[in-house]
């Protein structure tokens, strides 16, 4: 028996991986980088634009649009209440 078969989860077809929809409040961001550095899926990067204080807020990096798993690490660590994530059903989008 191959390992692959043993390791296949029995609930594979009903399990869903959450999809996070990222929301940003640009004017609050101070570009501390916590959300970008601590995202376990490297979803975020800095935007090209700057807010009124000169800071670049986070945006989704190229090719990462559906990578967010809604762990909300970025939301919890953000000292500015500038980013939050709403969980959606991945199957609705893919």
């Amino acid at each position: 028996m191959s390992l692959k078969i043993i390791r296949e989860p029995i609930n594979k077809y009903i399990q869903k991986i959450p999809l996070g929809l990222i929301h940003v409040i640009p004017e609050r961001c101070k570009e501390c980088g916590y959300c970008i550095d601590l995202c376990p899926k490297d979803v975020l990067t800095v935007s090209e634009e700057r807010n009124i204080k000169g800071y670049r807020w986070p945006k989704i990096a190229d090719g990462k649009a559906s990578e967010c798993i809604a762990c909300r690490m970025c939301e919890w660590i953000c000292p500015e209440f500038a980013i939050f994530v709403v969980e959606a059903d991945r199957r609705e989008y893919e």
């Binding site: 999809l19 929809l21 990222i22 929301h23 940003v24 409040i25 640009p26 004017e27 986070p58 945006k59 989704i60 649009a65 559906s66 209440f81 500038a82 939050f84 959606a88 609705e92 989008y93 893919e94």
Partner: peptide, 16 residues
């Protein structure tokens, strides 16, 4: 309602 085929982007908002 399914959103299939939609391009997922960060949403710019003003409140948390």
């Amino acid at each position: 309602m399914s959103q299939k085929g939609l391009v997922i982007k960060e949403k710019i908002v003003s409140e948390s």
